[in-house]
Amino acid sequence: MHTLSPTASSSLSLARGHYIYSITPSSPALFAAISSDDSLRVFDSNTLNHASVAATNIHEGVTLLKTYDAGQQLLSTAGRDGKVKLWDLRGGKSSAVLELETSQQAPVLSIACCPETNSIVAGTELTSYQATVAFWDIRSPGQTRLQYIESHSDDVTELQYHPIHKNIVLSGSTDGLVNIYNTLITDEDDALMQVVNHGSVHHAGFLDQETIYALSHDENFSIYPVTNPDEQTQGPDPVQFGDLRQPLGCEYITQLFISNQGSYIAGGNKLETRLDLVPLISTPTWRFDQENLWRLPGAHGEEVVRSVYLDGQSHTVFTCGEDGFVRAWKPEGTGQADPQSKGDVKVPRKDKKDKEKGRYKPY
């Protein structure tokens, strides 16, 4: 086991009672964050200081923040107002440069971006008995380019493009299904290449070109091969890990993230006030390398960690959570620890009313 030490922390000048949903790079040395006050904030990743409010009331119930392009110059957000927005924060701009809207203003629970094809795809909450996977070409934002409306029967909670083949898209839903589509095919039935029945999907995505993972809302985790409907050969069997909480010693899973450092699953324990980043390795078979996990002691106190990002260049892990703070972590001995974050940190607890107001479903 390795230990990461807290090097900086900041509330980003959020008002008491609010917390931070998600963080992502917005440009070199800058990060962006969305919060329960429906704001979009930008902060300096080196110190977590110099936070600025890029925009307020960006959605009526913001749900998502994603980087649009690899250059991290454009950001995409979505909300329960049924809108997806594209933001260009260069030059001090504070207004959305593009706005998309779902049919029936269905709340957006998942998005994925593909600058190679000028595309954004959004997954909606079940509205009027319909859950939609909607595609837009941002060069023609007035109407959707493609919609799949029959493949899921409940909230669409996850979307991701294939790492190489950008015509292939994965979706996951609380109906239990993980679907893979060939978006070059407009007919929905014919476009569906693969269906995996996993259980109510919290997160899902591609581990590599030929492998996907799925994590359910009750923390069951499995790895599945990507199958080709045109081939008759039998692929590898799924690797089913079951409920991760007991084997990983955690109470909840924040996410699985893939970086140039490898694949890690982030598991939190509120009672023991810690977060563990456990490597997921494929040799000789898929398994969690618990001997080489990275532990963040103190984490965000007794509050849930909502988002984790590993910056390979600065060797820094950034976290945000329901305590209303962003925190930076580095391997022990590489940075000056922040005394406010070190060790078994105690965070002022928010009352249940405030927490439920800020939480969106599914989570």
Rank of each mutant, 00 (worst) to 15 (best):
K346W: 06
L74I: 08
D69H: 07
G242D: 10
W329I: 03
S140W: 04
T186P: 00
V304A: 11
L271Q: 15
G142W: 03
I212Y: 03
L275I: 09
P107A: 09
R41W: 04
Q232H: 09
R306L: 02
Y161K: 13
L177P: 02
L192C: 08
D189F: 04
K361S: 15
D38A: 12
A337L: 03
F135D: 01
P279S: 02
H50D: 11
L89K: 05
E210Q: 13
L48R: 15
T316P: 08
V317P: 08
I281V: 12
P107M: 06
Y19E: 11
T77M: 01
Y363F: 11
H165I: 06
I265C: 05
A54W: 01
T124W: 03
Y19L: 13
E125Q: 15
T233P: 11
G235E: 08
A214G: 13
L40N: 09
L30F: 14
Q246Y: 13
V239T: 14
L4R: 15
C250H: 01
Q261H: 10
G321A: 05
V196K: 14
T127L: 06
T144D: 11
T233C: 12
Y129P: 01
L109P: 10
G333Q: 03
G335Y: 00
S140R: 10
K270Y: 15
E188S: 10
R41A: 00
A51R: 05
I149F: 09
T24W: 02
R295E: 13
D344Q: 09
G71Q: 12
D237A: 13
V169A: 04
C113M: 08
R306I: 00
K83H: 08
H152G: 11
Q209Y: 05
N197A: 14
G343N: 02
V42M: 14
Q340S: 07
T285A: 13
W136D: 00
E210S: 07
P279W: 00
G176T: 05
N49L: 13
S341K: 06
D237L: 08
A134Q: 10
T186K: 12
T124V: 01
G267E: 04
Y21R: 15
P297S: 10
F318V: 01
L86C: 07
V305T: 11
A214P: 03
T124C: 10
K85T: 02
K350T: 04
H165K: 14
A15M: 07
P28S: 15
V53A: 05
E188M: 10
D137M: 06
W329C: 05
K352F: 07
L48M: 10
D81M: 08
A337S: 09
R16N: 14
E125P: 09
N260A: 03
L89R: 12
P163D: 06
T63K: 07
G301N: 03
I58C: 09
G82Q: 00
T77Q: 00
G172W: 01
R245Y: 05
R145T: 15
T102S: 13
T186I: 12
W136K: 05
Y68F: 09
L184R: 04
K353E: 09
K357C: 05
G343H: 04
I281C: 06
E332C: 03
S173K: 03
Y129Q: 14
V53E: 06
V53H: 04
L280D: 02
Y309A: 01
D175A: 03
S36P: 10
C113D: 07
T211Q: 02
R274M: 03
V178F: 04
